[in-house]
Nucleic acid binder design. Structure first.
Lengths: 183, 183
DNA sequence: TCGGCAATGTGAGCGTTGTCCACATTCTAA
DNA sequence: TTAGAATGTGGACAACGCTCACATTGCCGA
């Protein structure tokens, strides 16, 4: 056969291709329109193919969420442990949520009623990694910063809050105000 | 006719009945299994009936989320404006999320890309109501407490954190630690 | 009082989805 | 080389969101 580029029967790296497609579709069309079939279409395979790599749709989403947590951890990994680290931590959440709101929403709304699911583990791992990376801060302080970052980012992603021009300054102001009010 | 209790053709209060059914199913089976058809079944009507009261499924969920925000506001409405108000505020989130995790998740994961949707408005309204109820605190402090409450509750709902026996003390410790670390 | 219209409910049906199945193709190790 | 594991296909099924034409009921003006 001289046919130039008939796609081979076996894809070669379908699992990652599906994750990439899903991630792109998530940002482009939103979670509601993210069907397994559309992911398969985007990756150029049949609608049954994904089941060779993920038990069900949920498992694909879980892998995507876990991927997000790992990248969030990396982002924090390159953070200096200075005095403003907690502000940087919160600000990092906002930057992440702004860059990929779809993935952010998926990560933090994934229903993990059973604690053994992958995203829950990945989330805990991210929190624990943070404790290693910033040993100067107490566990409570880091948990608080994590929660504050998540909460602020969620408010912004959901259009209930819009920080001004300087996001970092805004975050610092909120932390300072809350700290003063609760002292 | 002597038939004792044939349900009448017209329900009478179907809209609220649907909301009640949806809310119950949300807690019992989770959001993934919450179909408009199952809500209709639970309310004892045909699967097309809900469309006389909600434009689509999304609108029902939006109404449910808005309802949640109103109840959250009420909860905070009866809060004394003492020194520990911010801790109470955060703790209120945790209590709400614990009581109805399904509704909590729906409220805070509802995709409001367009800012004019009802839940986004209800969320903003709740935040603004808080500023009226606790005039002694700055807007930044209240926003921070709101975000921290949301974030901590999400961590707990998603099984990534389990506070000890005394939740309020735990919250206070986190606020104090974060405040100290960022001072 | 009655007649008609708006409001509200029904059942059937369309297109899409998640998932499974039997089968086809390719890769790999013995 | 060849058997079996891995990976892909097309077709099917039930459930879903949603729409339509039609049925039933409540209510208001003549």
């Amino acid at each position: 056969m001289l046919s130039v580029s008939t796609s081979p029967y076996h894809h070669g790296d379908l699992r990652n291709a599906l994750l990439r497609s899903a991630r792109a579709l998530l940002e482009r069309s939103g979670e509601a329109d993210l069907s397994l079939r559309s992911v398969a279409r985007d990756a150029g395979v049949s609608s049954a193919a994904p089941y060779r790599h993920f038990a069900d749709k949920d498992e694909l989403l879980a892998a995507l969420a876990a991927m997000g947590y790992r990248e969030l951890t990396e982002r924090f990994g390159s953070m200096p442990a200075t005095d403003g680290a907690l502000t940087d931590l919160v600000e990092g959440f906002l930057a992440f949520a702004e860059a990929e709101p779809g993935l952010f929403r998926l990560m933090f709304s994934y229903p993990c009623t059973r604690g053994d699911k992958e995203p829950a583990r990945a989330g805990r791992a991210a929190l624990e990694a943070l404790q290693h990376q910033l040993p100067g801060f107490s566990e409570e302080a880091l948990t608080g910063a994590w929660a504050l970052g998540h909460g602020l980012a969620a408010l912004i992603v959901h259009n209930q809050l819009s920080p001004g021009d300087d996001r970092r300054e805004y975050v610092a102001a909120i932390i300072k105000a809350a700290a003063k009010a609760s002292s």
